[in-house]
């Protein structure tokens, strides 16, 4: 196990090193976009909406934006950047010529995607704390959860990438998968507002559980009932990782 972790880390380290080289631009992007969303929607919509689910709208929105940013960071990495490494630069082929298996490559990649989400969440959390939108130490629990969310969405993106023949393919996943998921997972409004049938469906979406975890934690509430959502995300992550390994094995080692 320790030996396996060492191999995963060598893949993780490669991606981390590349990221560090362009970190300044990456940090700016990761910072600015969610901040715009939060402030413009929060103050703009918030002035009409008032309180939602017992919270001022800006506070309500903060959890949703943070969860969405964590998801986007891992999704982008798992689609565009992973595809580049797989099919354009053939970085994975180089790794597979070394004593690494495809499962090692996938694990290293997925852990890096978790890290990307962690970084994104960390940036936003800093800003939220500055605005007084994250109170108490419980908010720090958001960080490991963002990592877990990154593993979920990163591995799901890798499954999509395993089918891709060009970058264009990802548009389908984003418009048919990611965008509806953001709208249905309680990011902008509580999912109670959805018709009952749709609501049940929305509870099957991983982002729903990420939002359901992060929002109360930002408000400072640690609650054992939240563990149910963690269990769902863990199960989702494990199945997606296994699926990604199997799919990429079909594609790359046939």
């Amino acid at each position: 196990m320790l030996e396996a972790a060492r191999r995963w880390k060598s893949v993780w380290r490669r991606n981390a090193w590349v990221w560090r080289k362009g970190a300044r631009t990456a940090l700016l992007g990761g910072f600015v976009e969610p901040l715009f969303n939060l402030l413009i929607l929060g103050f703009g919509l918030g002035s009409y909406v008032g309180r939602v689910a017992g919270l001022p709208y800006l506070d309500f929105l903060a959890g949703g934006i943070l969860a969405t940013s964590a998801m986007n960071a891992a999704t982008f990495e798992g689609l565009y950047l992973a595809y580049t490494r797989m099919a354009v630069l053939k970085t994975w082929d180089g790794m597979l010529a070394a004593p690494l298996s495809l499962a090692d490559v996938v694990m290293g990649e997925v852990l890096w995607m978790g890290t990307k989400s962690l970084i994104a969440a960390g940036l936003i959390l800093t800003v939220l704390a500055g605005f007084g939108l994250a109170s108490g130490w419980a908010a720090l629990a958001v960080l490991p959860l963002a990592f877990l969310a990154g593993v979920c969405f990163g591995s799901m993106a890798l499954v999509v990438t395993s089918f891709a023949r060009s970058y264009d393919f990802f548009v389908y996943y984003i418009t048919l998968g990611i965008t509806p998921m953001v709208l249905l997972s309680g990011v902008f409004f509580p999912s109670d507002a959805l018709p009952p049938a749709v609501r049940v469906g929305s509870e099957c979406l991983p982002l729903f559980h990420v939002v359901a975890l992060i929002r109360p934690l930002l408000a400072g509430g640690l609650d054992l009932a939240l563990l149910g959502h963690v269990a769902v995300l863990l199960a989702f992550a494990v199945s997606m990782i296994l699926l990604a390994i199997w799919r990429l094995e079909c594609r790359l080692t046939q």
Binding site: S10, V18, K90, D93, G94, A98, P99
Partner: peptide, 26 residues
């Protein structure tokens, strides 16, 4: 193993390529 098409890491320098690759071997 030397592949048919170079798959060197274009984000890195020559030495960094060797260091990263050595990392894959532990």
């Amino acid at each position: 193993v030397v592949p048919q098409q170079d798959n060197l890491d274009i984000d890195f320098t020559v030495v960094e390529n060797l260091r990263i690759y050595g990392g894959y071997f532990g």
